[in-house]
């Protein structure tokens, strides 16, 4: 129940940040970060494959409704939902929790794994969304810089959000 509440809060936070701040950033700058990846990538690794596909699609379609993007985020989230369980080997997270690892399961596998995992999925998500939106037009002049900048900014935002939210949960836990 507590977990459900925690992820619900993260979801609300993601939608709020996306709609209030990031959509305005997108209007003024070239890049287009998606904080919803924070919710998707930090979902429990224990989700099985079909649950993962279904939940990720639902989140994507909900985001599409809010952003008027009609299916683009649903498609990108579905890919993440399908491939994420193959990437997460449960044996990596079996070690006993120390410190913040209690609430952030991802930290148990070490920083190297964490950055690889986050980077790959962020890059893929950003690439797919941009590709569906622009169909690859102006690849070198607009697509490529937007993709790289958006991915970097999303990664930074996710790490900041992790600090902000999970530390808060940790303090409450202790």
């Amino acid at each position: 129940m507590r977990e459900l509440l925690k992820y619900s809060l993260i979801l609300v936070y993601c939608f709020f940040v996306q709609l209030v701040f990031l959509e305005n950033v997108h209007s003024f700058f070239w890049f287009q970060p998606f904080i919803i990846l924070f919710f998707l990538l930090y979902m429990p690794y224990t989700l099985n494959k079909w649950q993962s596909v279904l939940i990720f699609f639902s989140v994507g379609i909900f985001l599409d409704t809010l952003l008027n993007s009609h299916g683009i985020h649903a498609s990108a989230s579905l890919f993440i939902g399908l491939f994420r369980p193959y990437f997460l080997n449960p044996s990596l997270f079996n070690a006993p929790a120390r410190g913040d690892e209690k609430s952030i399961w991802l930290n148990k596998a070490g920083n190297k794994f964490k950055f690889a995992y986050l980077s790959i999925f962020i890059l893929f998500y950003q690439f797919w969304v941009l590709l569906l939106e622009t169909l690859g037009k102006n690849f070198f002049s607009i697509f490529l810089p937007t993709w790289i900048l958006s991915s970097v900014f999303t990664l930074v935002l996710i790490l900041l959000s992790e600090e902000l939210l999970f530390r808060t949960f940790n303090r409450k836990d202790s």
């Binding site: 099985n48 494959k49 079909w50 993962s52 596909v53 279904l54 699609f57 994507g60 379609i61 599409d64 009609h70 299916g71 683009i72 649903a74 498609s75 579905l78 939902g81 399908l82 369980p85 569906l132 169909l135």
Partner: peptide, 28 residues
């Protein structure tokens, strides 16, 4: 293969939405 079946069905649904609601995508 439930997850794969779900993935294919939902991906098709997403593409139907994309094609139907984006004028440029629809034309293309």
């Amino acid at each position: 293969y439930l997850h794969l079946i779900l993935f294919v069905v939902l991906q098709i649904l997403s593409f139907i939405l994309i094609v139907n609601f984006h004028v440029y995508h629809k034309t293309l």
